[in-house]
Design a binder for these strands. Structure first.
Length: 483
DNA sequence: AAAAAAG
């Protein structure tokens, strides 16, 4: 049996690994570390939760052991798709490099340049970054990548999903072709294959069995739910979520609740808080300090419910999540696997419950296709079927305790979804966002056959300029038409 | 009926 001691790591690294409580490498670690230490390129095909991070951090620290950093010329570079993942890699680096003098800088967006600049100027051994912020530093002439000896790309398939591949290719070209490359992806999409063919040389390929999608450690269930009335869908769905949480009782130590949209994340978090649940939102529109604080609180157990967009679906290592609730069925089947994979980790048991409204049935079918299993149907904890709910519906607001037994009385009205206090986004906002988009990636191509263009507005004429100024009555908000 | 990433 292989132990870490057999892998040829620097003794300082080895003792840090031992201190962290590990003796036996995971398959990806056992496979990737020896060739990496031998200076070879590595192509690792592995999901998160397989010990992937240590499989590049440990050899990297060992290889960088000799030599020291020069100003503005980092000796190695790790690229991750999200800020949280980059921060997680940085934390791993700190853990395993604690007996060395190696230095690092974390270059992510949403925080000030100042500290990052100071570190780069001084010189760091390891740069851990998201692509956008890294290129930003480079373009401002603060950074030279010609000294990079080792480059790591983590979660490449997610980079692909997020449109980062052109950035990654550009960064590759800024580093010396003699560099060593360690490249990790959960899947080998054709586009990923093309990149590895271009930038890796004779890589050692290590493929680790996909983490069982329906791990026995995760109990799964789907709750089908149909609104009694269209205009009640949102608030009933939140009531159902509360009932599901309450139904789990003490067993639900903590949970991540996934929503498909950022606005929904905010609404659900606000609603749960209103009902006395210890909940906080996390998604990409929140500022970085809040994201960091919220995640830290959830990790250390001081926050019980994390309401999240898919920013938290992949890669994040949060030990001890007892439950995952999918408030929405994810529209990409893969994401389901990633989301529920946040629970049932490290030998612990977990439970994943998914709420499915009729509109989402096709996505549910796609998920069951992917995992090649039927997810057990679970009866809705809200009493009775649709008919019973319809009958009860009239006095919904007057029947407090029934739906949320654990909620503190008096039951506040769930007004989280009421017209927002902040102004709704206008087409103009969206156009401004698109203008900001860099590289014009998301820009409309061609003339799109519009013959009513307004002179002087280029391709970015706000849509409302071509419409009547008189607002149409909105069928969604006119109660009378609901039945 | 999407999220993420630069500011």
């Amino acid at each position: 049996m292989t132990t870490f001691a057999d892998l040829g790591l620097d003794p300082k690294v080895l003792s840090a690994v031992t201190d962290a409580g590990y003796t036996e490498p995971t398959p990806i670690q056992a496979g990737a570390i020896p060739p990496a230490l031998a200076g070879r390129d590595v192509l690792g095909i592995a999901q998160t939760g397989t010990g992937k991070t240590a499989s590049f951090v440990l050899p990297m620290i060992t290889l960088l052991g000799r030599g020291r950093a020069r100003a503005r010329m980092p000796r190695s570079l790790v690229l991750a798709p999200t800020r949280e993942l980059a921060a997680q890699v940085a934390a791993n680096f700190d853990t395993y490099a604690k007996n060395t003098k190696l230095t690092k800088a974390l270059l992510i967006g949403g925080v000030s340049f100042k500290e990052q600049d100071a570190l780069i100027d001084k010189g760091v051994d390891v740069l851990i970054a998201t692509p956008g912020r890294l290129l930003d530093h480079f373009e401002r002439g603060k950074l030279l990548l010609t000294g990079v000896q080792i480059m790591v790309v983590d979660e490449a398939d997610r980079m692909l999903d997020m449109g980062f591949i052109p950035d990654i290719e550009r960064i590759f070209q800024l580093t010396p072709f003699t560099r060593q490359t360690l490249f990790f992806s959960a899947t080998m999409a054709p586009e990923i294959e093309r990149v590895t063919n271009t930038f890796l040389s004779a890589p050692e390929k290590i493929e680790v069995a996909r983490r069982a999608t329906t791990a026995e450690s995760i109990e799964q269930g789907v709750v089908k739910y149909t609104a009694t009335r269209k205009d009640r869908q949102a608030s009933e769905k939140r009531a159902l979520l509360r009932a599901l949480i309450d139904g789990e009782g003490e067993k639900c130590k903590n949970a991540i609740i996934f929503c498909n949209r950022k606005t929904e994340v905010d609404i659900v978090a606000k609603s749960l808080k209103k009902y006395g649940y210890d909940a906080a939102p996390i998604h990409g529109d929140l500022d970085q300090s809040q994201r960091t604080r919220t995640l830290a609180a959830f990790r250390d157990g001081s926050l019980r419910f994390l309401i999240a967009s898919d920013v938290a679906a992949r890669g994040l290592d949060i030990p001890d999540v007892s439950h995952v609730f999918n408030y929405d069925v994810p529209s990409h089947a893969e994401d389901y696997v990633h989301r529920i994979g946040r629970t049932g980790r490290a030998g612990k048991l977990g439970k994943a419950l998914t709420i499915c409204v009729p509109h989402d049935e096709k996505w549910l079918a796609a998920i069951e296709d992917l995992v090649e299993k039927e997810i057990p149907r679970v009866e809705s904890p809200l009493k009775g079927g649709a008919k019973a709910r319809r009958d009860r519906d009239v006095q919904d607001d007057a029947a407090p305790a029934k739906e949320a037994p654990a909620a503190p009385a008096p039951r506040p009205r769930d007004t989280a979804a009421d017209p927002a206090p902040t102004a709704p986004r206008t087409p103009r906002d969206r156009d401004r966002d698109r203008d900001r988009d860099r590289g014009g990636r998301n820009r409309r191509g061609g003339k799109s056959g519009r013959d009513d263009a307004v002179v002087g507005m280029g391709d970015h004429m706000p849509a409302f300029l071509t419409r009547s100024f008189k607002p149409k009555p909105d069928p969604e908000t006119t109660e009378e038409t609901a039945d």
